[in-house]
Amino acid sequence: MTAVERAAGSRFPGHGLKVRGVVVERGERRVLDGVHLEVRGGQLLQVAGPNGAGKTTLLRVLCGLTRPLAGRVTWDGRPLTGPEAAAHLAYLGHVDPLKDGLSPRENLRAHCALQGVRVDRAAVARALGDLGLQDHEAVAVRHLSQGQRRRVALAGLVLLGRPLWILDEPFASLDAGAIDTLRGVLEGHLAAGGMVVLTTHQPVPVRGDCRSLELGAA
C-alpha cells in the first residue's frame, strides 16, 4: 500500500476554511489588503503572485502564526484564535522542520508527539518507506540531501493525518523524482477529501480540483 492509497483510506468529513477580508500590515506597509478565500474538502488552492505579494504572510495567517489587523479566518465556522487552536492543520514552511542531529525516525516521532498524535514505530517506518526512505531511517538528517529532507518532512505531514495542509513553496529545489513523490502525496490527500493551500511560482502539476488565488504586487 502506498502513501497515496493509505491517505485515501482515511476520509476527512466535509470541512471548510474561510477567510474574510484579512488585512496585514508590516511596518507601515499593507502586505495583505482584504483577502477573501474559501477552500472546501478535496480542493487545492494555489496562492500565486510576485515576490513580496504576501503569499507567505497569508499562509501564516491561515495557521494563526500571524495575527491579522482586520478580518477573520474560520475553520468549520469557528474563528481561529491562535496557533494552539490550529489542531486541524499541518504547516510546512520553506525550511523543513527537522533537527539535523536526529535521524528521520527520531524527528518524526518527536514531531508527532509534539502535535499530539500517537504513532508507533511501524507507522513511522511505513510512512518513510512509502516515500522511498527505508534505508535512511537511522541516518542523521544532516547527511540527507535536500530532496530526501523534504520527503522526511512530507512523511511528517502524512503521519499527522490533519485535513488541512498549508505548504510554503513545497516544490522549490526538488528534482523530478521528488516532485513526482510530492504530487502523489498531494493527490492522495485531495482524493481523501483533504485540503491543500500552497504557494508556488511554478504551475502546480497536481490533478484534481485546483484553484488559484492571485495576490497583487503591493
Binding site: L65, E84, A87
Partner: peptide, 19 residues
C-alpha cells in the same frame, strides 16, 4: 528558529508555556 521546528512548537495544540 532557524530550522523551523519553533514554528511547529507554536502550532502544537498543547499550552506553549509547558513546552
Amino acid at each position: 528558529g532557524r530550522d523551523g521546528t519553533l514554528e511547529q512548537l507554536l502550532l502544537s495544540p498543547w499550552p506553549l508555556p509547558l513546552l
